[in-house]
């Protein structure tokens, strides 16, 4: 589904990713862990196509397509979803207007009729309740005045509505209490399917108690320095990240 080979990227003149290799097959859940500044968020930005992140080498195939040649919105329409670590507030645009515009755009790309307002409202309310948010949140400005937890729930709500092929969760767990963490996990687990994959970027292994990954990778200095199964996350929790650097040289 996603095949990253020797991906290198920089911001301005500063190299951040120094050769990432990663293969994600349909149905798999990969966790990417690593210390602050290792390039975890940059990976999500580069894959989603954020301006200012320059790819200097390597390739990314997504469902057989050259992902890096696609515009940001095309990647989203093709089924790539990025849950933001810090979701953006957009006052004046209601959550409902935002969600409808987004779902309409993705459906149009898939050649599906847009949902009428009534059916969409029903669907949005249902998902809203599923992530434990009052439906009032649909009327408020996008993420406007939302608490950290509410913003993250809103990201999961979007993911549920868009039903992506591949979801990248960028530290969605940071700053969450156990309740919100379980909501995020339930959202992901509910969407797990044979043709859908997840890349969970996290600093802590706590979320992985609820979302059991198939693979765990450790990112340091812009490279994946170690890969393993679920037990690697527990080891990291035990020992911290310092030993990785030494082991990887």
């Amino acid at each position: 589904m996603l095949s990253i080979a020797n991906l290198q990227a920089r911001i301005d003149d500063k190299p951040i990713l120094r050769g990432i290799d990663l293969d994600v097959k349909p149905g798999e859940v990969h966790a990417i862990m690593g210390p602050n500044g290792s390039g975890k968020s940059t990976l999500g930005y580069v894959l989603s196509g954020r301006e200012g992140y320059e790819v200097t080498a390597g390739s990314v195939r997504f469902d057989g397509q050259d992902l890096l040649a696609m515009a940001t919105e095309e990647r989203a329409r093709a089924g790539l979803f990025l849950a933001f670590q810090y979701p953006v507030e957009i006052p004046g645009v209601s959550n409902m207007e935002f969600l409808k515009a987004s779902v309409d755009a993705v459906r149009a790309h898939r050649g599906v009729e847009p949902l009428d307002a009534v059916r969409f409202l029903r669907l949005a309310r249902e998902k809203c309740e599923a992530v434990g948010m009052k439906t009032d949140f649909l009327k408020r400005g996008v993420n406007e005045g939302f608490s950290g937890g509410e913003k993250k729930r809103n990201e999961i709500l979007q993911m549920m509505l868009l039903e992506p092929r591949l979801a990248i969760l960028d530290e969605t767990d940071s700053g969450l209490d156990i309740d919100a963490l379980q909501v995020v996990a339930a959202g992901v687990n509910g969407l797990r399917a044979a043709d859908r994959s997840f890349v969970i970027v996290t600093h802590y292994q706590r979320l992985l108690d609820y979302i059991v990954p198939d693979f765990v990778h450790v990112l340091a200095h812009g490279r994946i320095v170690k890969s393993g199964g679920r037990e690697l996350a527990l080891e990291l929790e035990d020992k911290g990240y310092a030993w990785i650097g030494k082991e990887a040289g």
Binding site: G49, E51, A71, E73, F81, V88, I90, L162
Partner: peptide
């Protein structure tokens, strides 16, 4: 804000309209 909307599949032109509207 523009990037956020683009990552949700909303086209650039429509995203700009949405942000101006907001």
């Amino acid at each position: 804000s523009l990037y956020y909307l683009l990552t949700r599949g909303i086209g650039r032109r429509e995203a700009e309209v949405l942000l101006g509207y907001g």
